[in-house]
Design a protein around this nucleic acid. Structure first.
Length: 151
RNA sequence: UGAGAAGCCCGGGCGGCCGCUCCGAACAAGCUGCGAGUCAGCGAAGUCGGGGAGGAAAGUCCGGACUCCACGGGUCAGGGUGGUUGUCAACGGCAACCGAGCGCGAGCUCAGGGACAGUGCCACAGAAAACAAACCGCCGGCGGCUCUCGGGUCGUCGGUAAGGGUGAAAUGGUGCGGUAAGAGCGCACCGCGGAUGUGGUGACACAUCCGGCAGGGCAAACCCCACCCGGAGAAAGAUCAAAUAGGGAAGGUGAUGGCGACGACCCGCGCCGAGCACCUUCCGGGUAGAUCGUUCGAGGCCGGCCGCGAGGUCGGUCCCAGAGAAAUGGCCGCCGCUGCGAAAGCGGGACAGAAUCCGGCUUACAGGGCUUCUCACGUC
RNA sequence: GGCCCCAUCGUCUAGCCAGGCCUAGGACACCAGGUUUUCAUCCUGGCGACAGGGGUUCAAAUCCCCUUGGGGUCA
């Protein structure tokens, strides 16, 4: 469905999905998905956040957040970190690699993230982690004959 | 005007763009069902309207509602509470009053009774610390020595709790009388104990009379007295049910035995599950996950009446968060508050995030507002 | 989210239930001195703590309450 720009009578009720929406499909919900991401995912660490990426075989990318009590003791501060991370994911969704589960973990305790910097680092780290995941996928399928990589 | 005391309330406002969640509409790609209809149910995406953190949501210190443990009663153990009277669903909360201490005052703080029901502890110091008691003193008798013949001094036997000293605490305090010196020994006042009377529902208060004191503290030490409390907790619990494993499961009857409410025991009850025998039926258990519980409630707001008050009652009105790796947000602009600065301007904005729900308590908190009251000074 | 524990020198602990002898004991560690040619061992001495705040009591590490930090457990 190509979006026709010239359809004046359709403006009030257009059927185009909003570009910056963040609905439930893009959220990582099940406990099993988290376990798989932590076990098999590739990681990339920046100064603000740590990205764990794993291909999910879907046509979209999903977000998971893991903000523990180590980062902030007070729930208000933890919620602030979570909201900034989620907002960065939402606003930069178009620049992220497609078809991954991304788990975001704050990189340091006592973190007070700024949205613009978080956004930039999220894109960079997500691509870095996705590249590593691709390398791992290329190395993994022939686990036996490839040998020599792992001592 | 200044310094205080008590109680209550608020916890920035408006707007723009982009998002999340729940509810309700109309539209609707599509899916399911059979009666096969352009029927019924479900319904993605998008659109519109409405709701969306707190006074503490926190700590989890109490009390309930709710759910399961099949149920009821009793004894002991264990735990909690402690002025009185109320209030409340209940409470360790709250209100009014009583008592003690503190404050010029408004007010604030504390808390049951029993230490002759019993057991226990009171270190150090001190003569003595709980069947009391004489260390230094003071006073008297007797004896020795001395003598300036008043006395002094040593020893001994007594009297004495006024003085010294120790201590947190030593048989009530002050004054007068009294005495060899003293002492409730006597008296006055205060304190204390008892009896009687009056007032009060009561805790208690007041008055009169009697008693010379009747003998310390610690029960937030064990304990005694009165009252209250079964245990677990929404990860409680109920329903549906992929995958995997795979054949028992449920019900009834009978006897025996065991069991229960998770501290022990007893009584009633005959419940529950296991083993055995027989009979009947064919599904049952259950993980991931999903749904319910889950938000209408001891509810909020307004008004009348009753009550000093906590609160009660009647009427009207409103629906006011329901998430689930967990929404209630992000980025800006203007105004208001406030700090610095001559100004332009540059900052600051607390404590803190629902997780089944209520009533309290406690703790954290920038700033601001209101009401009542007290004291001091000034003016009229 | 609920429930239940714990807190004493730098570390591991004793004392707490029955309050006073606690100016809080011990071991390891650290520091200084001695022994030894030197190091180690050994000997002597020193440093060093009741999580914080209230209350009860004449007196609190100990009893009671609140707060703050740790930890365990339950699907």
């Amino acid at each position: 469905m190509l979006e026709v720009p010239f359809a004046p009578n359709n403006l009030g009720r257009h059927h185009v999905p909003r570009p910056l929406a963040f609905d439930r499909k893009k959220r990582l919900v099940a406990k099993g998905d988290f376990d798989r991401a932590f076990r098999h995912g590739s990681r990339a660490r920046g100064s603000i956040l740590l990205v764990v990426a794993r291909p999910n075989g879907l046509a979209h990318t999903r977000l998971g957040l893991s903000v523990g009590k180590v980062i902030w003791k007070r729930a208000v501060k933890r919620n602030r970190v979570r909201r900034i991370f989620r907002e960065a994911f939402r606003l930069c969704y178009g620049e992220l690699p497609v078809g991954f589960d991304l788990v975001l973990i704050p990189a340091a305790p006592k973190l007070e993230p700024v949205l613009s910097a978080t956004c930039a680092e999220l894109v960079a780290m997500a691509h870095k982690a996705a590249r590593r995941a691709a390398e791992k996928a290329a190395a993994a399928p022939p686990p036996r004959d490839a040998g020599g990589d792992r001592p």
